[in-house]
Design a protein around this nucleic acid. Structure first.
Lengths: 220, 220
DNA sequence: TAGATTGTTAATCGATTAACAATC
DNA sequence: TAGATTGTTAATCGATTAACAATC
């Protein structure tokens, strides 16, 4: 069992970095011993050692000045902090190229986040199983989400339909949305939206690569 | 021809938002008149009016207190600022599910950013055309990138191979990389890396949706 | 012990917001 | 003109970095 303090506050950047630390540890750990220092983890993830120490402090796991952070306990602590107790079911709307890729990408990756239902407006794609996930007709959205108690959804539909889909998800009591649509989604305050916009990201890269006078952020 | 000031500095956030403004304008403009006010654009993109004004100031296009910003001139200004003069060729490495989806997603979307070459280690995928893009063997990477003067690349390979691919891209004189691999990429200072990590983003959404005590950022 | 690393506070930095005179 | 909106500066906010006593 790991030590645990009361946590008051974390920034959303810290949440992101914690997920990154875990990823790095899970991928590399066979090569290492049983513990790691802040500067080693920092190096692996492209952040500063001070940042690692502060982030891990937020998680509430305390390292040792001599051995650093014990890997298995660190993973357990990050897990306790980031994950919910039970596996979280996730829905995905839109099983075009991108939707299917995301289903495939997420399959068997994180045991705590499982895509359990897919939806599409195109009847030729529905009522079948794609990469192990049942694809339903859009009409069944509210029903299926309620039945499976799904509160997290991924939106992979064209920008023109994103807001409509988003509204229906919110209506069906979804509280977190990850959207690939290149569109701003209007949601009530209690709903979290995270946008991953491929085109914007690519335009940004192209611009920054071309403009050496723009100050570079650390490449995280 | 639009007015243009000397621009000293923009933050990378501003670059992102400018891309977003352009997207919003392009999608909605038929519905509107010929001009738009800062607060209208702000509403569409989920940012503040002050932010819009400051961002557009960086672009160097000056609006009018009476009519606001003239749409066609605004688009021209953002284009002049964000895009390079000629179309920018882009390479993509890894044509698995995700890679193909990205190729498809980007096809015909931005005339200034065109995927012109794809690469994969799997011989069954190479030497053919995918969504209109020729897919080459990895051995030809440097050759093709040099021939086509490609300086921007998308990495859509598994995390375990991302660093190796990245090193080869840097060697081939690539200056901007958009990576989908859930891994930190070590690059020289002159190379820009932008990471779009689906798993991290989803973990973040799940966490934030579950933790109402974490202060919410604006949902952009 | 001596020394590297930790948790934690104070100083710095950068970006956002608020405010307002200038403008059409 | 009167008034809403602009460009631009000053104030605020939050996150990162630096520093250092505490620790094993």
């Amino acid at each position: 069992m790991v030590k645990h303090k009361q946590i008051q506050w974390v920034s959303s950047r810290t949440v992101e970095r914690l997920a990154l630390y875990r990823r790095a540890i899970l991928r590399k750990s066979p090569d290492w011993g049983t513990s790691i220092f802040s500067h080693q983890l920092a190096n692996l993830c492209g952040v500063t050692a001070a940042q690692v120490r502060r982030d891990l402090m937020a998680v509430g796991y305390t390292g040792s000045p001599i051995t650093g952070y014990e890997l298995s306990q660190l993973l357990e602590s990050i897990g306790l902090f980031l994950d919910s107790a039970e596996a979280t079911p996730v829905a995905i709307v839109g099983v075009g190229d991108l939707g299917r890729a995301v289903i495939h990408f997420l399959a068997n990756r994180r045991p705590k986040l499982v895509v359990t239902a897919a939806f599409d407006a195109d009847p030729s794609k529905t009522d079948r199983v794609i990469h192990g996930v049942r694809c339903h007709r859009m009409e069944r959205l509210t029903q299926v989400l309620t039945d499976q108690a799904i509160e997290i959804a991924i939106v992979a539909v064209p920008a023109s339909e994103a807001q409509i889909v988003c509204d229906r998800l919110v209506e069906a009591k979804v509280r977190g949305i990850l959207s690939f649509a290149p569109a701003f989604l209007r949601v009530p305050d209690h709903v979290v939206v995270e946008r991953l916009d491929v085109t914007v990201a690519l335009e940004k890269v192209a611009f920054l690569a071309r403009s050496p006078n723009v100050p570079r952020k650390k490449s995280t």
